[in-house]
Amino acid sequence: MCRNIHQLHNFEPPATSDEIQAAALQYVRKIAGSTRPSRANQEAFDRAVAAVAAATADLLGELVTVAPPRDREVEAAKARARAEKRYAS
């Protein structure tokens, strides 16, 4: 489940609210142990996702680095190359 959580800090352009929300959802799914909560747990699940997304946005807004921002396309190409090497038959 958590393979979909990607590093969001120090990219150009910065992480979008959709990326932050997706990471928060994946995190809560992992902690809860399920991808879909029951109706009885839906409200708590949704509150947890919102809280994690808010904390993530706050963290990303406050982090400081001297490293130059990384390019999303270059990092995606590197990840594809690693995957091709890993899963090559």
Score class of each variant (00 low, 15 high):
Met1Val: 01
Cys2Gln: 15
His6Trp: 07
His9Lys: 12
His9Tyr: 15
Phe11Lys: 03
Glu12Tyr: 14
Pro13Cys: 08
Pro14Lys: 14
Ser17Cys: 11
Glu19Gln: 05
Glu19Trp: 00
Gln21Pro: 04
Leu25Ala: 03
Tyr27Gln: 00
Arg29Asn: 03
Lys30Trp: 10
Ala32Glu: 00
Thr35Glu: 04
Arg36Val: 12
Ala40Ile: 07
Ala40Glu: 09
Asn41Tyr: 09
Gln42Ile: 04
Glu43Leu: 15
Ala44Met: 12
Phe45Asn: 02
Arg47Glu: 12
Arg47Phe: 14
Ala48Tyr: 05
Ala50Pro: 04
Ala50Arg: 15
Ala51Asn: 14
Val52Met: 02
Val52Arg: 02
Ala54Gln: 08
Ala57Gln: 14
Ala57Ile: 09
Gly61Asn: 12
Leu63Pro: 04
Leu63Asp: 06
Thr65Gln: 08
Thr65Gly: 04
Thr65Lys: 03
Val66Phe: 13
Ala67His: 09
Pro69Gln: 09
Pro69Val: 08
Arg70Tyr: 06
Glu73Asn: 12
Ala77Gly: 12
Lys78Leu: 05
Ala79Pro: 00
Arg80Ser: 13
Ala81His: 12
Arg82His: 08
Glu84Phe: 13
Glu84Cys: 15
Lys85Ile: 01
Arg86Glu: 07
Tyr87Gln: 01
Tyr87Leu: 04
Ser89Trp: 08
Ser89Met: 06
Ser89Asn: 06
